[in-house]
Amino acid sequence: MRLEVRRGKKEITEGTTVADKLLIVALMIISLSGFIFIKNVFPQGTDVRIEVNGKSAYRLPLNTDTTISVKGVIGDTVVEIKNRKVRIKESPCPNKICIHNGWVDRGAIVCLPNKVMVFIGGSEDRQNKTIDAIAG
């Protein structure tokens, strides 16, 4: 009995074997593939989609500060991206509801008169996991 215990102790303290190295590599592969797996299943809100009159017009990254002029049906709508937030800076529409919307980091901003729609992608999906539509 005593002898067996001693032998076990001896094996543990032996240097790393080929098998150990393989195990480490395998674990690394598994953990890395886990990252990729999670990224694919839970995409993050990283892009801004701009549509004009129902047609896709631009796709921009949310993490790069940009200002873009978008030609709508009555004039130019200026969309600004800054600090991962989006706003409509200038608009030719009469009521300016889109401008009053202010800075937004999820969902969408819509200018009805100029038919310009700005969607923040990915984060929209995250919101939709809880609520599918809003009445009112």
Binding site: T130, I131, D132, A133, I134, A135, G136
Partner: peptide
């Protein structure tokens, strides 16, 4: 709303 979502749940509607 009609039918169920792919996860088998009804549609969830928020009231403003």
């Amino acid at each position: 709303a009609f039918g169920l979502k792919p996860d088998g749940k009804p549609w969830k509607i928020g009231i403003k």
